[in-house]
């Protein structure tokens, strides 16, 4: 049972579904920054918060979640800027 579970987790199917959905949304105009922001925020698992609080305490989890949400926005902005610069460079080269 343990190995079945770990094997199933190894290639996370849900992750692939999410990435495929994001690829669809990208084709419809979603920016890379928003995709990065979404993927970073997937790390905050609300249903698993009780377990996390049990192991690390509510103060730690609260601070960690807050900082992670903040950083996800920063990551989105950084990736958006990098890809916008690349787009402009490509346009200038053409």
């Amino acid at each position: 049972m343990v190995f079945c579970n770990s094997g199933r987790d190894f290639i996370n199917r849900t992750y692939l579904y999410v990435v495929s959905l994001l690829a669809d949304l990208k084709n419809k105009g979603l920016s890379y920054g928003l995709i990065a922001c979404f993927l970073y925020n997937r790390a905050i698992k609300i249903p698993l918060l009780p377990i996390a609080i049990f192991y690390f305490g509510w103060k730690y989890i609260l601070v960690l979640s807050f900082v992670m949400i903040l950083m996800s926005v920063i990551q989105g902005i950084v990736i958006d800027k990098i890809f916008r610069k690349n787009k402009i460079k490509r346009r200038n080269n053409l």
């Binding site: 990208k26 890379y32 960690l64």
Partner: peptide, 29 residues
């Protein structure tokens, strides 16, 4: 481990940049 799948679906450059920035941000966070 998911990098090959992510790069195939969302693009190699994006997947690399995202994982790299996430790695750096994990230390900062």
């Amino acid at each position: 481990i998911q990098l090959p799948a992510e790069s195939a679906i969302l693009g190699k450059k994006f997947a690399l940049f995202r994982n790299l920035t996430a790695f750096i941000l994990s230390i900062i966070v």
